[in-house]
Design a protein around this nucleic acid. Structure first.
Length: 266
DNA sequence: AACTAGTACAACCGCTGTACC
DNA sequence: AGGTACAGCGGTTGTACTAGT
């Protein structure tokens, strides 16, 4: 017997369909099992990642809004690189997405700082003195403070990032935010955000920033799934799922299901 | 038009935590 | 209590795309 090689690399549309189909069947828990029965020749890990980062119906896609960016910055200054924790505060965003954003953001910022430093090397106020000034004014938790002053992975240094961000916004003509302002903003908008952010996803809209290129995510309609982020319906027993899946199919889902079936049956 | 650098994003790897036996 | 399997998390890498030269 020749054991089939484990597939790696980018997922194909067919694989996505298969995965969605089997996750609907068995829930999004037993990834090794799903990987096996689906015949995807992927690892359970890989399947989980694809689902969590790309196929999950709860995902909001597209660029982070300025509000989200601010939230990420603030939460990062509190929690450091606890991406999944941060992601939980941004409905529809994945830890991977936020991690990627942060990395890009930090690179940009670093490049900017370098530019500034080289162009005004004689300036008495360096970015590092700024950041040390700033960090002395704001307590951060151990995670974040560990990063201040040392070259961490993303060269984060929580607090001066906020300075950078706020400064950037001021340059852009927007008003400058203090941390208090930011927090107030966050608290005020949190509930509204939950609604605004999730609504388009649930409704399968392709509003700006919700542009799935594949059909799978839109097959979940709130009416058919009654999705609840704290208790996802797809976390269920095999028996439950097989009993519930079919009677609750919406027309939209059903057509996609058939499409998926066509893939599976060849 | 061709090349390069920068950016965004998907995916993998390795480690850790946790549930189960 | 210890071992094992699996899920989750954070870090890292690869690559496609885009803007600038």
């Amino acid at each position: 017997m020749v054991e089939e090689e484990i597939r790696r690399g980018p997922w194909t549309e067919q694989e996505d369909f298969k995965l969605v189909y089997f996750v609907n069947m068995f829930g999004d828990r037993r990834w090794d099992f799903i990987a096996k029965v689906s015949g995807l020749n992927r690892t359970g890990k890989s399947c989980r990642l694809r689902w969590v980062n790309y196929l999950h119906p709860d995902l909001k896609r597209g660029k982070l809004t300025s509000q989200e960016e601010r939230l990420v910055t603030e939460l990062h200054s509190k929690w450091g690189n606890r991406w999944s924790r941060i992601a939980r505060k941004l409905p529809g965003r994945t830890d991977n997405e936020i991690k990627n954003y942060w990395r890009t953001h930090m690179r940009k910022k670093k490049a900017l700082e370098k530019k500034r430093a080289s162009s005004s090397s004689s300036s008495p106020v360096s970015s590092s003195s700024l950041s040390s000034l700033f960090s002395s004014n704001h307590a951060v938790d151990s995670d974040a403070s560990k990063e201040v002053g040392e070259e961490s992975f993303y060269d984060t240094g929580g607090c001066d990032d906020i300075m950078g961000l706020i400064g950037a916004e001021e340059e852009g003509g927007e008003k400058g935010y203090s941390l208090d302002d930011i927090w107030e903003d966050i608290v005020m908008s949190e509930e509204k955000d939950m609604y605004n952010i999730l609504q388009p996803v649930y409704e399968g809209h392709s509003e700006e920033g919700c542009n799935f290129s594949y059909p799978p995510p839109m097959i979940y309609s709130p009416s058919s799934w009654e999705f609840n982020s704290s208790h996802p319906l797809w976390v269920m027993d095999e028996e439950e799922s097989s009993m519930m899946l079919f009677p609750t199919l919406s027309d939209q889902y059903y057509s996609c299901y058939e499409q998926g079936n066509a893939f599976l049956t060849g």
